[in-house]
């Protein structure tokens, strides 16, 4: 077990190293932090521009490989992920935003899984009946609708509701606006902020769990062992619930494990529209500001999430499936 984990861990570190290095080089080639200064009015003197760029190790007059080597040794030796063009350390900027993203995404993920899987099972059992068709139609609709469109219409609806009620029930920007110290009011305030983005993220997530769980269950419903269960004397619906459902949840659990990765970066649009200072929004900022170090740092964090998700998926399967657990 230990040796295996070590080997897989080493492989993942190697992957991460290559992927993040490639990202750094790509970002350095395609991003132009010098333009930030050149477009300023009045334009700062060349020397001071170069000095700032060199301080952040993003001066395009230095050879790329030299910059890469400095960047890499800083990370490996000092855990220093570098500075943004404004001379802010990017690692701490990323760290502070992880919290906001987590608050936003956790509840929505849980809701999406529960609702999505439930609808998936419900519709699979009623394949081709009207419930399946109606819910399937909604699912297809929400599956393809661009997140921005969905979020913007949720905002419009919330504003109309607020106006109709005459007071602010929903907040459409940020995560907090309460400044007192009553914990209940603080929580209520958080809920008023969270509810809209949560609705958006839940819909998007639930739709995909619905459609995949439906497929998985339909596949296992036709399995021979369900027929065996019926031949034993279980009526169809019990045979499905006892025998097909359990097996069909295994791939869903794997998807849940994998979703950890998308959780933190998948909310870019939602964070932007609802003005939540999470990782997604920070990423947009780094791109706009030609922040090579910042963008790479986020990519690295996302990469770690992906690999943790992959490892978790392996563990989940091993835990749920006796074919893998005992062999």
């Amino acid at each position: 077990m230990g040796r295996f984990l070590l080997r897989r861990g080493a492989n993942y570190v190697a992957m991460l190293f290559v992927a993040v290095s490639a990202t750094y080089l790509l970002a350095s080639v395609f991003m132009d932090p010098r333009s930030n200064y050149l477009s300023r009015n009045p334009r700062p003197p060349m020397d001071s521009i170069n000095a700032s760029l060199t301080a952040a190790n993003i001066n395009d007059e230095d050879p790329l490989l030299l910059r890469y080597w400095r960047w890499l040794t800083d990370i490996v030796l000092h855990w220093n992920w570098g500075l943004s063009p404004d001379q802010e350390p990017v690692a701490s900027a990323v760290a502070t935003r992880i919290g906001a993203s987590t608050q936003l995404v956790t509840l929505a993920t849980v809701l999406a899984i529960v609702i999505g899987v439930a609808i998936g099972v419900y519709t699979a059992i009623r394949q081709y009946k009207w419930q399946d068709r109606v819910l399937g139609g909604f699912a297809t609709f929400f599956l393809v609708i661009p997140t921005a469109v969905l979020a913007l219409f949720v905002v419009i609806a919330a504003i109309y509701i607020n106006e109709a009620l005459g007071f602010r029930l929903f907040y459409v920007t940020g995560l907090h606006s309460y400044e007192g110290d009553n914990p209940w009011l603080w929580l209520l305030d958080l809920a008023q902020h969270l509810i809209l983005p949560t609705i958006v993220l839940t819909i998007i997530g639930a739709v995909s769990y619905h459609l995949t769980q439906r497929t998985y269950l339909l596949d296992t419903m036709k399995a021979d062992y369900v027929r065996t269960a019926r031949a034993k004397g279980l009526p169809l619906h019990l045979a499905i619930r006892k025998h097909a459902l359990r097996t069909s949840l295994i791939p869903t659990a794997v998807n849940v494990a994998f979703s950890i990765a998308t959780v933190f970066t998948g909310a870019v649009i939602t964070e932007t529209i609802f003005a939540i200072n999470g990782l997604g929004r920070y990423f947009v900022t780094t791109i706009v500001n030609n922040d090579i170090n910042g963008a790479t740092c986020i990519a690295a964090f996302a990469g770690v999430c992906t690999l943790v998700g992959a490892l978790l998926a392996d563990l989940v399967v091993a835990w749920l499936d006796p074919r893998i657990r005992i062999s």
């Binding site: 790509l26 990423f283 990519a299």
Partner: peptide, 22 residues
């Protein structure tokens, strides 16, 4: 397969944004 797995480590959305930016 190793290369494919490696390429999937970083979400593609981030990478597209980087190169289209310029």
């Amino acid at each position: 397969m190793w290369v494919l797995d490696m390429l999937l480590v970083i979400p593609s959305f981030l990478l597209i944004a980087m190169i289209v930016r310029s």
